[in-house]
């Protein structure tokens, strides 16, 4: 694989993301794990993992210069994937950190899941894909008639599932966006690296875009 195909996974202190790197390597990707904005700018593909608090995550990205690197890669239409909080950071903001702007690459706000059920929502939950979603290259091999299970861990989510950027919908008392995509920017609310065959398939698709 050439360096133009190289996947850079951003290291910004957001939890244990070694498994993201390992899963991408398992799928044959050439992966670099880096906190260096210069390395991020050179990425063929960029992955933004995330665990923890929205406000802290965006703070680290802005301070370390990685937020600007992300904007540059996205403006250049190189593939970008946000995972879990990394997906939430794509939006304009989150109820988890009121008033703190996100990356603003997708319109809308992330909200706390309005439910009486236990939060965080943890576990394997089914995601349904629309007819239009399964033609998206990230979802090559997925079918609209076959929901797939992915491992979710979160208390906040994008609840507007009518938006055309929503590719996969999951439900935990209320529906929420579990996979989103707009141009060359994608997000997964679940952890593909912990979601076995279908999670790995999604990462493989991403690595081959």
């Amino acid at each position: 694989m050439t360096t133009c195909g190289r996947v850079v996974v951003l290291d910004y202190g957001a939890g244990n993301v070694r498994s993201v790197v390992k899963a991408l390597e398992h799928e044959g990707a050439d992966v670099v794990f880096s906190s260096d904005p210069a390395v991020a700018r050179q990425a063929g593909r960029l992955v933004l993992p995330g665990q923890g608090h929205f406000g802290q995550c965006i703070g680290s990205l802005e301070e370390g210069g990685l937020a600007d690197a992300i904007r540059e890669v996205v403006a250049d239409e190189r593939p970008f994937l946000g995972i879990c909080v990394g997906m939430q950071l794509l939006y304009e903001g989150s109820e988890e950190a009121p008033g703190v702007p996100g990356l603003g690459l997708l319109p809308g706000l992330v909200r706390r899941i309005p439910t009486e059920l236990h939060l965080p929502h943890v576990g394997w939950n089914g995601v349904a894909f629309s007819d239009q979603a399964v033609v998206d290259p990230l979802l090559a091999g997925f079918n609209a008639s076959e929901p797939r299970y992915f491992y979710h861990v979160h208390s906040y989510a994008q609840l507007d599932v009518e938006n055309c950027q929503v590719l996969g919908v999951c439900r935990y008392d209320v529906p929420f966006a579990s996979v989103v995509g707009h141009g060359r920017v994608w997000g997964a609310q679940f952890h593909p690296e912990k979601s076995q065959e279908w999670g790995l398939k999604l990462l493989r698709n991403f690595a081959r875009l």
């Binding site: 939950n125 089914g126 349904a128 929901p147 439900r171 935990y172």
Partner: peptide
């Protein structure tokens, strides 16, 4: 759909 029961 809801959370799947787990086999561990």
């Amino acid at each position: 759909m809801s959370l799947a029961k787990r086999i561990i």
